[in-house]
Design a protein around this nucleic acid. Structure first.
Length: 745
DNA sequence: TAATCGTTGGTTTTT
DNA sequence: CCAACGATTA
């Protein structure tokens, strides 16, 4: 045990060994938050204060749940069996499966991910003949999820205007549709399990007695419903309830836009009369120049619980700041700098290129690609979100739950079987009159549509029959073959990658089944009925696929430069970090300036970005940037001005003209702001009539390599000026005037 | 049913 | 500018 607690600092030790009371741990970036959380669990168990089954540990992502379990495994000699560690959604799912009857759900209910939910809403609007211009599906989705995240059912929504009343009605209709189809969306998992425990006292008491310690990671990211969910387990903090141990950092709360309530931290402290509030302020990640910059920036926020990070690692290198003319130049400079770092022996995977919005990755990728530097972009399609995977899963879901109309509609004509929009409309109408699922409605139909649909139903029936009792991987394999998916992609000339992904799905199923085997042997908690096994395991796998969409990209092994948004960088760290696009309107984002407290959230985002760096931090911005097909001229971000001058080393001469208004004394400090001349956003627009070299649109020119052509368009000015030329033989091309040697003909 | 054209909109994201 | 989606057409 002494081993367990070795090398903890005073505050960490205090947090880890807190008595069985509520605790709020304000853990700054890089202060060893995860370590404290896991060590506390290990300590509680090892010191005999609690049985593993008395632990409930909640995280936001599967990744952190896994990491926690992995670390626990190295700390504890006993197995983690009986412990509940997982995401809010994963644990809710577990609860609902175990008590599906009490929750009013069939055992094999399916989980809708966001895309499925959107499809379900679109389908609903169609069947109800609702104008989707008046009720945009996306907005409706947000509305419904927003209500659910606040714990509000359709009947309880306060609607003061007609529009809201109509949306509430659609919310209600959506609910009925989900119930009819035995599907549950993400927000519903939470709400349903919350209501289950709230209404079922014996069950609630059971879990309240069972879990003696509830530990929550990233507490600042909880939404209202999640907080209430936790309170339910903790018996509202009453005497005899579980001890709540919440770890979070209000300064890293960057998900308000999706419902996170930092206020939960204050509410928790107040409502639970938390006797222990501990601040972890020693940072083990970054040199002090970087930390000081982060502290200086976040100090500008008013709504804080208050915290100041420090380190004993020394000042380290200055923060490097670079001003570029255009986004392309900025990217080129970043890539050169990356190359220099790599030459000095840096690992590419230890270099991160961060940006505020995904669109910015394009320029960076372009330059990296030209320089042949391996890179990896985070974000984008994840494994279980791929088209071919979703198709395969839809077949599997139909086997588990034939009432899942979303899945039915998805694959009824994929691969094509001559079932078009016409037949589907017919079916949808009939389903409405009979009030049955698509699947169950098919026998009611006659004629040609009836028979092709019946054939499809027979296909699913056959697959269900033939896979009954088979091990999961064989079920998947069978379905891939008999659904025609494999054949379809084999025939498709660019289907190779999709075929490989389908094989990967097979691997995932095999892996999953093996994992379940292991757990079933060790998990005393599960009482699995062998007869239910086969298809229950299928349902578990499908839930797993929905809840854990898999990684964004497969090639993790390679040593590649890491590209991602600041949001996705949260929780990660790198030796060198490049933060690009530090411009007003971009970061802070223009939309955030209108939102109340939006700027403070942007600043927290900046704080997160800066604290990702261990040794080197580069900040850069460009005077002009291509956005939405237009060149925009931005001032540098106000966040730059918030960093004390002495921490910074300018790689380009500090330019007062690109400084944003506001606080002086930061990076741009000491420079007088000129009153009159040329705000950069008024930079001259390119003239299309006459181009720098005396060329005109419509003019015939000749090019050494491409031959004769006509100028059809022009864009940009100065060294950036480009012309589009339609060549007689070489096609249409964009050429840089400064580079291409053109001769008027 | 597939292919093509035109329109639209374009922070951030996990479950 | 460029991707994604929807509507139209072969």
């Amino acid at each position: 045990m002494s081993n367990l607690l070795a090398n903890l600092n005073t505050e960490q030790l205090q947090a880890v060994t807190l008595p069985a009371q509520h605790g709020l741990i304000l853990a700054g970036a890089g202060s060893g938050k995860t370590r404290v959380l896991t060590t506390r669990i290990a300590w509680l168990i090892q010191s005999g204060q609690v049985d593993p089954a008395g632990i409930l540990a909640v995280t936001f992502t599967n990744k952190s749940a896994k990491e926690m379990l992995a670390r626990l495994a190295t700390m504890l000699p006993v197995s983690t069996r009986g412990m509940w560690v997982g995401t809010f959604h994963g644990l809710s799912n577990r609860l609902l499966r175990a008590h599906h009857r009490d929750a009013g759900l069939p055992q094999l209910f399916q989980i809708l991910d966001s895309a499925d939910q959107l499809a379900a809403i679109k389908r609903l609007l169609k069947t109800l003949n609702v104008d989707d211009e008046k009720f945009p599906p996306r907005e409706l989705q947000q509305f419904i999820n927003g209500q659910k995240d606040a714990g509000i059912r359709a009947h309880a929504v306060e609607a003061w205007d007609d529009y809201t009343r109509q949306r509430v009605q659609l919310y209600q209709e959506y609910e009925s549709q989900c119930q009819r189809e035995a599907v549950v969306d993400f927000a519903e998992l939470l709400l349903r399990s919350y209501e289950l425990l709230e209404r079922n006292e014996p069950l609630r008491r059971h879990y309240q007695r069972r879990f003696r310690h509830i530990l929550v990671d990233e507490f600042q990211d909880t939404n209202r419903l999640q907080y209430r969910w936790l309170k339910l387990f903790a018996d509202e903090g009453r005497e005899g309830g579980a001890a709540m141990f919440c770890v979070g950092d209000d300064d890293q709360s960057i998900y308000r836009f999706r419902g996170a309530e930092v206020g939960n931290m204050l509410d928790f402290e107040r409502e639970f009369r938390v006797p222990n509030v501990i601040r972890l302020e020693q940072n083990y990640r970054s040199h002090s120049n970087i930390l000081d910059a982060a502290n200086a920036v976040i100090r500008h926020n008013t709504k804080r619980l208050g915290k100041n990070l420090w380190t004993d690692q020394g000042a380290g290198e200055p923060i490097r700041v670079y001003e570029a003319f255009a986004d392309g130049d900025e990217a080129r400079w970043i890539v050169e700098e990356v190359q220099a770092l790599v030459r000095e022996g840096a690992l590419r995977s230890e270099i991160a290129l961060l940006y505020r919005s995904n669109a910015q990755s394009r320029v960076l990728e372009h330059q990296l690609f030209s320089a042949a530097i391996p890179y990896r972009v985070y974000g984008g399609l994840r494994f279980f979100e791929r088209q071919e995977i979703k198709h395969a899963l839809a077949y599997l879901r139909l086997i588990a739950n034939e009432d899942d109309d979303t899945s039915f509609a998805r694959v009824v004509n994929f691969p094509t079987r001559g079932i078009g929009a016409r037949s589907l409309e017919l079916l949808s109408d009939a389903a409405r009159t009979y009030n049955t699922s698509f699947y169950a409605t098919v026998p009611h139909l006659s004629g040609k549509p009836g028979s092709v649909l019946a054939q499809f139903v027979r296909l699913v029936e056959d697959m269900r029959r033939d896979t009954a009792g088979l091990p999961l991987p064989e079920v998947v394999d069978h379905v891939l073959d008999h659904s025609g998916l494999r054949a379809h992609y084999k025939a498709d000339k660019d289907g190779r990658e999709r075929l490989e992904n389908l094989d990967e799905l097979l691997n995932a199923a095999a892996y999953f089944a093996a994992e379940v085997q292991v757990n079933a042997r060790t998990d005393a908690d599960s009482e699995v009925d062998a007869r239910m096994q086969a298809h229950a395991q299928l349902a578990d796998f499908l839930a797993h696929a929905s809840l854990e969409a898999g990684d964004h990209q497969a090639d993790q092994g390679a040593d590649a430069v890491q590209l991602m948004t600041v949001h996705s960088a949260k929780g990660l760290e790198f030796n060198a970090v490049f933060l690009s696009g530090l411009e007003e309107g971009l970061f802070p984002h223009e939309n955030s300036i209108l939102e109340s407290d939006g700027l403070e959230e942007e600043r927290r985002l900046m704080y997160v970005a800066v604290t990702r760096a261990r040794e080197r931090l580069y900040l850069s911005f460009a005077q002009s940037r291509m956005l939405h097909g237009q060149t925009r001229y931005n001032l540098r971000s106000r966040f730059l001005e918030e960093i004390p001058t002495e921490l910074v080393k300018w790689l380009t001469p500090p330019n007062p003209r690109s400084a944003a208004g506001g606080a002086m004394g930061g990076v741009g400090g000491g420079y007088f702001k000129p009153s009159a001349p040329v705000p950069l956003e008024r930079a001259p627009r390119p003239s299309f009539a006459t181009l720098p070299n005396g060329l005109k649109i419509g003019q015939s020119v000749s090019h050494a390599k491409f031959g004769q052509g006509v100028i059809v368009a022009a864009e940009g000015s100065g060294t950036d000026a480009k012309v589009q030329i339609k060549f007689e033989t070489a096609g249409v091309k964009w050429l840089l005037l400064a580079v291409a040697k053109l001769e008027a003909v």
